[in-house]
Write a protein that binds this DNA or RNA. Structure first.
Lengths: 109, 109
DNA sequence: AAATTAGATCAACAGGAGTTGATGTATCAA
DNA sequence: TTGATACATCAACTCCTGTTGATCTAATTT
Protein backbone atom coordinates (compact mmCIF):
# COMPACT_ATOMS: atom_id res chain seq x y z
CA UNK A 1 0.00 0.00 0.00
CA UNK A 2 1.19 3.52 -0.73
CA UNK A 3 1.14 5.43 2.52
CA UNK A 4 2.82 8.64 1.47
CA UNK A 5 2.82 9.72 -2.14
CA UNK A 6 6.15 10.61 -3.76
CA UNK A 7 6.65 14.42 -3.84
CA UNK A 8 4.78 14.64 -7.18
CA UNK A 9 6.27 17.53 -9.17
CA UNK A 10 3.92 20.46 -9.57
CA UNK A 11 1.94 20.19 -12.77
CA UNK A 12 1.79 22.92 -15.42
CA UNK A 13 -1.63 23.75 -16.81
CA UNK A 14 -0.80 22.03 -20.09
CA UNK A 15 0.28 18.86 -18.40
CA UNK A 16 -2.84 18.78 -16.29
CA UNK A 17 -4.89 19.29 -19.40
CA UNK A 18 -3.25 16.38 -21.18
CA UNK A 19 -3.99 14.09 -18.26
CA UNK A 20 -7.57 15.28 -17.98
CA UNK A 21 -8.17 14.87 -21.67
CA UNK A 22 -6.86 11.33 -21.64
CA UNK A 23 -9.10 10.50 -18.69
CA UNK A 24 -12.20 12.14 -20.11
CA UNK A 25 -13.43 9.27 -22.23
CA UNK A 26 -15.93 6.66 -21.03
CA UNK A 27 -14.00 3.76 -22.44
CA UNK A 28 -10.64 4.92 -21.19
CA UNK A 29 -12.12 5.50 -17.80
CA UNK A 30 -13.29 1.87 -17.72
CA UNK A 31 -9.76 0.83 -18.53
CA UNK A 32 -8.39 3.10 -15.84
CA UNK A 33 -10.83 1.73 -13.29
CA UNK A 34 -9.90 -1.82 -14.21
CA UNK A 35 -6.23 -0.97 -13.82
CA UNK A 36 -7.12 0.65 -10.51
CA UNK A 37 -7.47 -2.93 -9.21
CA UNK A 38 -3.94 -3.73 -10.30
CA UNK A 39 -1.95 -4.74 -13.33
CA UNK A 40 -3.80 -6.36 -16.23
CA UNK A 41 -2.92 -8.17 -19.41
CA UNK A 42 -4.45 -6.78 -22.61
CA UNK A 43 -6.31 -9.99 -23.25
CA UNK A 44 -7.87 -9.79 -19.80
CA UNK A 45 -8.96 -6.23 -20.46
CA UNK A 46 -10.44 -7.19 -23.81
CA UNK A 47 -12.49 -9.84 -22.10
CA UNK A 48 -13.49 -7.89 -18.99
CA UNK A 49 -14.64 -4.89 -20.99
CA UNK A 50 -15.89 -6.71 -24.07
CA UNK A 51 -14.02 -4.57 -26.54
CA UNK A 52 -12.78 -4.96 -30.07
CA UNK A 53 -9.05 -5.47 -29.97
CA UNK A 54 -8.12 -2.48 -32.12
CA UNK A 55 -10.40 -0.26 -30.12
CA UNK A 56 -8.76 -1.17 -26.85
CA UNK A 57 -5.33 -0.81 -28.39
CA UNK A 58 -6.18 2.69 -29.57
CA UNK A 59 -7.22 3.80 -26.11
CA UNK A 60 -4.28 2.15 -24.41
CA UNK A 61 -2.04 4.17 -26.69
CA UNK A 62 -3.73 7.40 -25.70
CA UNK A 63 -3.34 6.55 -22.02
CA UNK A 64 0.27 5.51 -22.51
CA UNK A 65 1.20 8.67 -24.38
CA UNK A 66 -0.42 10.76 -21.67
CA UNK A 67 1.78 9.04 -19.11
CA UNK A 68 -1.15 7.56 -17.22
CA UNK A 69 -0.19 3.94 -17.73
CA UNK A 70 2.94 1.89 -18.26
CA UNK A 71 3.25 -1.30 -20.26
CA UNK A 72 5.64 -4.19 -20.00
CA UNK A 73 5.90 -6.94 -22.51
CA UNK A 74 6.23 -10.50 -21.35
CA UNK A 75 6.52 -13.07 -24.07
CA UNK A 76 3.69 -12.31 -26.40
CA UNK A 77 1.57 -10.65 -23.78
CA UNK A 78 1.44 -7.08 -22.78
CA UNK A 79 0.75 -6.05 -19.17
CA UNK A 80 -0.39 -2.55 -18.30
CA UNK A 81 -0.62 -0.76 -14.98
CA UNK A 82 -1.49 2.69 -13.74
CA UNK A 83 1.28 5.17 -13.04
CA UNK A 84 0.32 6.42 -9.59
CA UNK A 85 2.70 9.39 -9.92
CA UNK A 86 0.54 10.76 -12.72
CA UNK A 87 -2.63 10.33 -10.69
CA UNK A 88 -1.05 11.91 -7.62
CA UNK A 89 0.24 14.85 -9.63
CA UNK A 90 -3.21 15.54 -10.98
CA UNK A 91 -4.69 15.16 -7.54
CA UNK A 92 -2.29 17.73 -6.21
CA UNK A 93 -3.02 20.10 -9.06
CA UNK A 94 -6.71 19.92 -8.20
CA UNK A 95 -5.94 20.59 -4.59
CA UNK A 96 -4.11 23.80 -5.36
CA UNK A 97 -7.02 24.87 -7.49
CA UNK A 98 -9.55 24.40 -4.73
CA UNK A 99 -7.49 26.07 -2.06
CA UNK A 100 -7.71 29.67 -3.15
CA UNK A 101 -10.96 29.91 -5.06
CA UNK A 102 -13.06 31.36 -2.27
CA UNK A 103 -11.83 34.93 -2.67
CA UNK A 104 -14.86 37.11 -3.41
CA UNK A 105 -14.74 39.25 -6.53
CA UNK A 106 -14.11 42.94 -6.23
CA UNK A 107 -17.07 44.66 -7.93
CA UNK A 108 -16.11 44.89 -11.59
CA UNK A 109 -16.73 47.25 -14.57
CA UNK B 1 -8.79 29.28 3.64
CA UNK B 2 -10.23 25.78 3.53
CA UNK B 3 -8.33 23.68 6.04
CA UNK B 4 -10.36 20.50 6.00
CA UNK B 5 -12.48 19.63 3.04
CA UNK B 6 -16.14 18.81 3.60
CA UNK B 7 -16.67 14.99 3.58
CA UNK B 8 -17.05 15.01 -0.23
CA UNK B 9 -19.44 12.21 -1.14
CA UNK B 10 -17.80 9.35 -3.02
CA UNK B 11 -18.04 9.85 -6.74
CA UNK B 12 -19.47 7.28 -9.14
CA UNK B 13 -17.49 6.60 -12.30
CA UNK B 14 -20.04 8.48 -14.40
CA UNK B 15 -19.88 11.54 -12.21
CA UNK B 16 -16.12 11.55 -12.28
CA UNK B 17 -16.25 11.24 -16.04
CA UNK B 18 -18.57 14.22 -16.38
CA UNK B 19 -16.24 16.36 -14.29
CA UNK B 20 -13.18 15.22 -16.20
CA UNK B 21 -14.81 15.86 -19.53
CA UNK B 22 -15.79 19.35 -18.55
CA UNK B 23 -12.25 20.06 -17.38
CA UNK B 24 -10.56 18.56 -20.42
CA UNK B 25 -10.74 21.56 -22.71
CA UNK B 26 -7.95 24.13 -23.02
CA UNK B 27 -10.27 27.06 -22.89
CA UNK B 28 -12.32 25.79 -20.00
CA UNK B 29 -9.15 25.03 -18.14
CA UNK B 30 -8.10 28.65 -18.54
CA UNK B 31 -11.42 29.70 -17.11
CA UNK B 32 -11.02 27.26 -14.24
CA UNK B 33 -7.52 28.50 -13.51
CA UNK B 34 -8.74 32.10 -13.53
CA UNK B 35 -11.53 31.17 -11.12
CA UNK B 36 -8.92 29.38 -9.04
CA UNK B 37 -7.82 32.88 -8.00
CA UNK B 38 -11.30 33.67 -6.78
CA UNK B 39 -14.65 34.82 -8.03
CA UNK B 40 -14.78 36.64 -11.38
CA UNK B 41 -17.30 38.61 -13.37
CA UNK B 42 -17.93 37.43 -16.92
CA UNK B 43 -16.70 40.71 -18.35
CA UNK B 44 -13.44 40.33 -16.45
CA UNK B 45 -13.00 36.84 -17.83
CA UNK B 46 -13.72 38.00 -21.35
CA UNK B 47 -11.00 40.59 -20.99
CA UNK B 48 -8.43 38.47 -19.17
CA UNK B 49 -8.73 35.61 -21.62
CA UNK B 50 -9.44 37.62 -24.76
CA UNK B 51 -12.46 35.61 -25.80
CA UNK B 52 -15.50 36.18 -27.93
CA UNK B 53 -18.46 36.64 -25.65
CA UNK B 54 -20.54 33.79 -27.03
CA UNK B 55 -17.59 31.46 -26.84
CA UNK B 56 -17.01 32.16 -23.18
CA UNK B 57 -20.71 31.86 -22.48
CA UNK B 58 -20.78 28.44 -24.12
CA UNK B 59 -17.95 27.14 -21.98
CA UNK B 60 -19.31 28.64 -18.79
CA UNK B 61 -22.51 26.76 -19.45
CA UNK B 62 -20.63 23.48 -19.81
CA UNK B 63 -18.80 24.11 -16.56
CA UNK B 64 -22.00 25.13 -14.79
CA UNK B 65 -23.90 22.06 -15.96
CA UNK B 66 -21.05 19.84 -14.81
CA UNK B 67 -21.33 21.39 -11.35
CA UNK B 68 -17.82 22.78 -11.44
CA UNK B 69 -18.83 26.41 -11.08
CA UNK B 70 -21.63 28.45 -9.59
CA UNK B 71 -22.98 31.73 -10.87
CA UNK B 72 -24.71 34.57 -9.10
CA UNK B 73 -26.33 37.45 -10.85
CA UNK B 74 -25.84 40.94 -9.50
CA UNK B 75 -27.59 43.64 -11.41
CA UNK B 76 -26.62 43.11 -14.97
CA UNK B 77 -23.41 41.32 -14.15
CA UNK B 78 -22.83 37.66 -13.66
CA UNK B 79 -20.21 36.44 -11.16
CA UNK B 80 -18.83 32.92 -11.31
CA UNK B 81 -16.78 30.94 -8.84
CA UNK B 82 -15.44 27.43 -8.52
CA UNK B 83 -17.32 24.86 -6.50
CA UNK B 84 -14.59 23.44 -4.30
CA UNK B 85 -16.79 20.46 -3.37
CA UNK B 86 -16.66 19.29 -6.97
CA UNK B 87 -12.90 19.64 -7.12
CA UNK B 88 -12.46 17.87 -3.80
CA UNK B 89 -14.72 15.02 -4.86
CA UNK B 90 -12.71 14.47 -8.00
CA UNK B 91 -9.51 14.67 -6.03
CA UNK B 92 -10.73 11.99 -3.71
CA UNK B 93 -11.83 9.80 -6.58
CA UNK B 94 -8.33 9.98 -8.02
CA UNK B 95 -6.87 9.10 -4.66
CA UNK B 96 -8.87 5.90 -4.43
CA UNK B 97 -7.73 5.00 -7.90
CA UNK B 98 -4.06 5.39 -7.08
CA UNK B 99 -4.23 3.52 -3.80
CA UNK B 100 -4.72 -0.01 -5.05
CA UNK B 101 -3.18 -0.06 -8.48
CA UNK B 102 0.14 -1.63 -7.52
CA UNK B 103 -1.15 -5.18 -7.34
CA UNK B 104 0.84 -7.26 -9.84
CA UNK B 105 -1.10 -9.23 -12.42
CA UNK B 106 -1.50 -12.95 -12.06
CA UNK B 107 -0.10 -14.46 -15.27
CA UNK B 108 -3.01 -14.53 -17.68
CA UNK B 109 -4.30 -16.66 -20.56
C1' DA C 1 10.13 -23.34 -41.38
C1' DA C 2 5.13 -22.88 -41.29
C1' DA C 3 1.21 -21.88 -38.72
C1' DT C 4 -0.79 -19.51 -34.74
C1' DT C 5 -1.56 -15.95 -31.51
C1' DA C 6 -1.17 -11.17 -29.11
C1' DG C 7 -1.15 -6.84 -29.99
C1' DA C 8 -0.06 -2.52 -32.81
C1' DT C 9 -1.07 0.25 -36.75
C1' DC C 10 -3.51 2.12 -40.66
C1' DA C 11 -7.15 4.15 -43.86
C1' DA C 12 -11.79 5.26 -44.43
C1' DC C 13 -15.73 6.74 -42.30
C1' DA C 14 -19.17 8.87 -38.72
C1' DG C 15 -20.60 11.63 -35.10
C1' DG C 16 -20.06 15.07 -31.76
C1' DA C 17 -17.96 19.08 -29.71
C1' DG C 18 -16.38 23.77 -30.40
C1' DT C 19 -16.59 28.13 -33.23
C1' DT C 20 -18.86 32.06 -35.33
C1' DG C 21 -22.07 35.66 -36.13
C1' DA C 22 -26.70 36.90 -35.36
C1' DT C 23 -30.56 37.30 -32.38
C1' DG C 24 -32.97 37.24 -27.85
C1' DT C 25 -33.67 38.77 -22.96
C1' DA C 26 -33.12 41.25 -18.86
C1' DT C 27 -31.22 45.12 -16.36
C1' DC C 28 -29.84 49.74 -15.99
C1' DA C 29 -29.24 54.73 -17.60
C1' DA C 30 -30.93 58.90 -19.79
C1' DT D 1 -39.84 55.05 -22.81
C1' DT D 2 -35.89 54.71 -25.42
C1' DG D 3 -31.34 53.35 -25.83
C1' DA D 4 -27.39 50.90 -24.15
C1' DT D 5 -25.08 47.18 -21.81
C1' DA D 6 -24.21 42.25 -20.11
C1' DC D 7 -24.99 37.91 -20.95
C1' DA D 8 -27.51 33.76 -22.94
C1' DT D 9 -29.03 31.23 -26.85
C1' DC D 10 -29.37 29.58 -31.55
C1' DA D 11 -28.30 27.75 -36.31
C1' DA D 12 -24.87 26.71 -39.53
C1' DC D 13 -20.52 25.18 -40.23
C1' DT D 14 -15.82 22.91 -39.23
C1' DC D 15 -12.80 19.87 -37.45
C1' DC D 16 -11.26 16.55 -34.38
C1' DT D 17 -11.80 12.16 -32.04
C1' DG D 18 -13.34 7.61 -31.86
C1' DT D 19 -14.90 3.43 -34.56
C1' DT D 20 -14.34 -0.35 -37.79
C1' DG D 21 -12.19 -3.87 -40.48
C1' DA D 22 -7.98 -5.00 -42.61
C1' DT D 23 -3.19 -5.52 -42.49
C1' DC D 24 1.37 -5.76 -40.18
C1' DT D 25 4.89 -7.32 -36.70
C1' DA D 26 6.83 -10.08 -33.33
C1' DA D 27 6.78 -13.94 -30.27
C1' DT D 28 5.53 -18.82 -29.82
C1' DT D 29 4.34 -23.46 -30.95
C1' DT D 30 4.52 -27.59 -33.74
Amino acid sequence: MVLSSPPAAALAGDEARALLKALADPLRLQVIEALGQGERCVCELTGELGLAQSKLSFHLKVLREAGLIDGRQQGRWMYYQLRPEAIRALQQWLGELASSCQTPAQPCC
